[in-house]
């Protein structure tokens, strides 16, 4: 099966973000960029499917040249090759989805795996938009993918409010990964060495003929209202009495 995995670099989610003084963005100096955790899960799933069904795993990202580093991380996990569509960082979800649709068509992918959400913009959009643009079935928030015997369909279990839901999708389809789909492997040292030599095709976004004018523009960022926490109580008795008479919530 030929699987395309869309990945996005994000600032290391374990570091606290600082907003620039003028609100124009976040401070990225000294912040490590990593593969969006949900995209790592998508890469892992693609590798597992390839291990079972054979085929090829192609990683694709839409963004600046520097994304090569995170692309190489995905190649080090075991993906076969990569496409980097070189573009600015101001593309919105619609633009990214339209660009990805071109790559999907070009590559004749039979399955597209993505993360459910990038943890910087927290949009949770691109996979579903891509499915619409391609006119393909979608299964978002996947925690399990099981292929039918003929590999023409898959049952996807989705993490939804209220529990779990299973839907059947005909392939080709777009599936977005939730946290419980798998646990991504670490790249091995030989994997990292090999990744340096794997093919990475760089495609200028302009060559794809997609209108990428942003339709959703982030004008500025501001810190959220600060919470005055840090209060302490000595024991359960004090806690309960304060909840009752001070906070008045009991």
């Amino acid at each position: 099966m030929k699987i395309l995995v869309a990945i996005k670099p994000v600032p290391n989610p374990d570091e606290k973000v600082k907003i620039k003084g003028d609100g124009s963005g976040i401070v990225l100096d000294n912040i490590k960029m990593v593969v969006n955790p949900f995209c790592e899960i998508a890469v892992e799933e693609a590798l597992r499917i390839r291990e079972k069904l054979t085929g090829e795993v192609v990683v694709v990202t839409v963004g600046p040249k520097e994304s090569e580093q995170q692309v190489r991380s995905a190649l080090a996990m075991g993906a076969d090759r990569a496409v980097l569509v070189e573009a600015g960082t101001d593309l919105d979800s619609l633009a990214v989805a339209k660009v990805l649709a071109k790559v999907v068509a070009d590559e004749k992918a039979e399955l597209v795996l993505m993360g459910k959400q990038s943890v910087d913009d927290d949009n949770n959009q691109v996979g579903q938009i891509l499915a619409a643009v391609l006119g393909w079935p979608q299964a978002s928030f996947a925690s399990k993918i099981e292929f039918a015997a003929d590999n023409k369909k898959a049952n996807v279990t989705r993490e939804v409010d209220g529990g779990l839901e299973t839907i059947e999708v005909a392939l080709p389809a777009v599936v977005t990964a939730d946290l419980r789909l798998n646990e991504p492997r670490y790249a091995s040292l030989p994997g990292i060495m090999k990744a340096k030599k794997k093919e990475m095709k760089v495609v200028p976004v302009a060559s794809l003929g997609v209108d990428t004018t942003p339709r959703v523009k982030v004008l500025s960022l501001a810190p959220p209202p600060l919470r005055a926490g840090g209060g302490r109580v000595a024991d359960v008795a004090e806690l309960m009495s304060k909840l009752k008479s001070e906070a008045k919530v009991l």
């Binding site: 979800s93 959009q125 619409a132 409010d161």
Partner: peptide
């Protein structure tokens, strides 16, 4: 912005080529 809205609204965005602000 539940798993319901987060699932079909982006698909609607793609169908209508319309901008979507999440959450």
């Amino acid at each position: 912005a539940s798993t319901f809205g987060k699932d079909f609204m982006p698909r609607l965005s793609g169908l209508l080529d319309a901008p979507l602000a999440s959450d």
